[in-house]
Computed example of a mutant assay.
Amino acid sequence: MSHCSGFQCPAVEPIICDPIVVVRDHYFTQVVPVIHTIQVVNRRHCIPVERHIYNTVTVDEGIEERVGVSGRKEKKQNVTVSKAKTKNKVKK
């Protein structure tokens, strides 16, 4: 086909295709409140801890004051003799 021959192609209707979709996403920040509840639990625990308490008792041994029948104070000596000492005295 030559242009010189004078042949001309008939007019045609254009073919229209579905559009090609090009998506350009644009993002914008949006603040969304997220609420977290924190529950604080206070616990109280008893822990036994020893505390040593010492009582002091003082006992006086030896001379004891006694009130006799007459009302006068008599001094009496409390002496305990061990059996070992008594046996030695008996043997001598």
Rank of each mutant, 00 (worst) to 15 (best):
M1N: 09
M1A: 14
S2W: 04
S2G: 00
H3S: 00
S5N: 13
S5F: 05
G6P: 01
F7W: 10
Q8L: 15
P10V: 01
A11M: 12
A11G: 07
A11N: 12
E13L: 07
E13N: 05
E13G: 03
P14S: 09
I15D: 10
I15E: 15
I16S: 02
C17I: 06
D18M: 07
P19G: 03
I20Q: 11
I20W: 01
V21C: 10
V21D: 07
V21A: 08
V23E: 09
R24E: 00
R24H: 01
H26Q: 12
H26G: 00
Y27A: 06
Y27R: 13
F28I: 11
F28A: 12
P33Q: 11
V34S: 10
V34D: 10
I35V: 03
I35W: 04
T37R: 15
I38C: 14
I38H: 14
Q39N: 01
Q39W: 02
V40E: 09
N42L: 06
N42V: 05
R43S: 15
R43F: 14
R44I: 04
R44A: 04
H45S: 09
H45I: 14
C46F: 08
C46H: 05
I47M: 07
P48D: 12
P48W: 01
V49T: 08
V49Q: 11
E50Y: 04
E50K: 11
E50C: 10
H52M: 13
N55D: 13
N55C: 06
T56R: 15
T56N: 09
V57W: 02
T58Y: 08
V59A: 04
V59K: 14
E61K: 09
E61R: 12
E61L: 10
G62E: 13
G62K: 15
E64I: 10
E64M: 14
E64R: 14
E65C: 05
E65K: 12
V67K: 15
G68N: 15
G68D: 15
V69C: 08
S70G: 02
G71Q: 07
G71A: 06
G71K: 05
R72L: 12
R72N: 15
K73T: 08
K73Y: 06
K75D: 04
K75W: 01
K76F: 08
Q77W: 02
N78Q: 09
N78T: 04
N78G: 00
V79Q: 15
V79H: 13
T80R: 13
S82C: 14
S82R: 11
A84D: 14
K85N: 11
T86M: 14
K87C: 04
N88E: 14
K89I: 00
K89C: 05
K89S: 04
K89D: 03
K91Y: 01
K91G: 00
